[in-house]
Computed example of a mutant assay.
Amino acid sequence: MNPDWFTFLTHRNAHIEQKRVLHFGQPAAELAQAASGSVLIDLSHLGLIRFSGEDAQNFLQGQLSCDVRSIDSTQASHGGYCTPKGRLLGSFLMWQDVSDNSYLMQLPVEQVETMARRLKMFVLRAKVSIQDNTDDFIRMGIAGKNALALLQGTLPDTAISPVPLAVTSILDGQVICHSENRFEIITTSTQAPLLWERLNKHTHRAGAAVWDWLEIREGIPAIFNATQEHFIPQMVNLDIIGGVSFKKGCYPGQEIVARTQYLGKIKRRMYLAHLDIDSSQDIAAGDSLFGTDTGDQACGMIAHAAPAPAGGVDVLAVIQTSSVEAGPIHWKTLSGPQLAILPLPYSIT
Rank of each mutant, 00 (worst) to 15 (best):
P3R: 00
T7V: 13
T10C: 06
H11M: 10
R12H: 09
N13M: 04
E17A: 10
Q18E: 11
L22A: 08
F24R: 01
P27Y: 07
A29H: 09
S36F: 01
G37Q: 12
V39D: 02
D42Y: 04
L43Q: 13
L43V: 08
F51A: 02
E54P: 04
E54V: 12
E54K: 12
Q57N: 12
Q57W: 06
Q63L: 07
V68A: 04
V68N: 04
D72T: 08
P84E: 11
K85T: 06
K85V: 04
K85P: 02
R87K: 14
L88P: 03
S91G: 01
L93H: 00
M94D: 00
S102L: 02
L104Y: 02
M105A: 00
P108T: 06
V109R: 12
E110T: 13
R117D: 06
L119P: 11
L119M: 14
M121R: 13
Q131S: 10
M140S: 01
N146T: 12
G153V: 09
G153W: 06
L155H: 12
D157H: 07
D157Y: 04
T158W: 11
S161K: 05
V163W: 03
P164E: 03
I176C: 12
H178A: 05
N181P: 08
R182V: 03
E184L: 08
Q191H: 11
P193K: 04
L194W: 05
R205E: 11
R205Y: 00
R205F: 00
A209I: 09
A209L: 12
V210H: 01
W211D: 04
W213R: 10
E215S: 05
R217Q: 09
R217N: 14
E218W: 06
G219C: 02
I220H: 11
I220A: 01
A222K: 15
I232F: 08
V236T: 13
I240V: 12
V244K: 03
V244F: 08
V244I: 13
F246I: 08
G249P: 09
Q254M: 05
I256M: 10
A258I: 13
A258K: 09
A258N: 14
Q261P: 03
Q261G: 07
L263R: 15
G264R: 09
K265F: 03
R269E: 11
M270D: 13
M270P: 14
H274M: 02
H274C: 00
H274G: 03
S279Q: 07
D282C: 00
I283D: 03
A284S: 06
A284K: 15
G291K: 01
Q297I: 09
A298N: 06
C299H: 01
G300L: 03
I302N: 06
A303W: 10
A308R: 05
P309S: 04
V318G: 04
Q320G: 09
Q320W: 07
T321W: 05
K332L: 14
K332D: 11
K332V: 13
L334E: 10
S335V: 14
S335H: 15
I341F: 14
I341S: 09
L342T: 10
L342K: 14
L344M: 04
L344W: 13
